[in-house]
């Protein structure tokens, strides 16, 4: 039987509700993750913060659909917007939706949850809802590859 614990990344790399947006961006950049788990001071999983959600809050609505001469202005506008919100708390931009799996869950369940919810990462928690790691879409694909080879 294929279980989450055989494919998951065991990591507590995370941000806390009291961290600010700049902390999130720096961690995302260094770990090459576009979504991070948000925990409290007891390491309880509270939700997630997505890079796209931060971007949505800083990019002007027309961004990407502008003629070149207007683009520089819009980039500057986005940088200014980010400067305004970078000290704001994670709580302002996080999603409190808690889609999680457990280490002993079957990989089949992961496929269902991931595909039904269009999530690229599912976070793994223990029975006390404390963060233990994550499983990615690539892990899911690798699992499917292994099943196919069997």
């Amino acid at each position: 039987m294929h279980l989450v614990k055989d494919y998951m990344m065991r990591t507590l790399n995370s941000v806390c509700t009291t961290d600010d947006v700049e902390d999130v961006i720096r961690l995302m950049h260094k770990t090459e993750m576009s979504v991070l788990p948000v925990v409290d001071w007891e390491n309880n999983f509270l939700g997630t913060i997505y890079s796209k959600n931060i971007l949505k809050n800083v990019l002007p609505e027309q961004y990407g659909f502008l003629e070149t001469r207007r683009l520089l202005h819009e980039v500057n506008q986005a940088a200014e917007n980010l400067a305004d919100i970078k000290t704001r708390d994670v709580t302002d931009y996080m999603s409190r939706r808690k889609l999680t799996v457990r280490e002993d869950d079957k990989m089949n369940n992961v496929a269902d949850i991931m595909l039904d919810n269009e999530e690229s990462y599912l976070f793994v928690v223990n029975e006390e809802e404390k963060l233990r790691g994550y499983i990615s879409r690539a892990d899911l694909l690798f699992y499917l590859l292994e099943v196919g080879e069997e």
Binding site: R10, L12, N13, T31
Partner: peptide, 8 residues
């Protein structure tokens, strides 16, 4: 299989 908790 060690859980990592690293500051980058």
């Amino acid at each position: 299989n060690v859980t990592t908790n690293y500051v980058y």
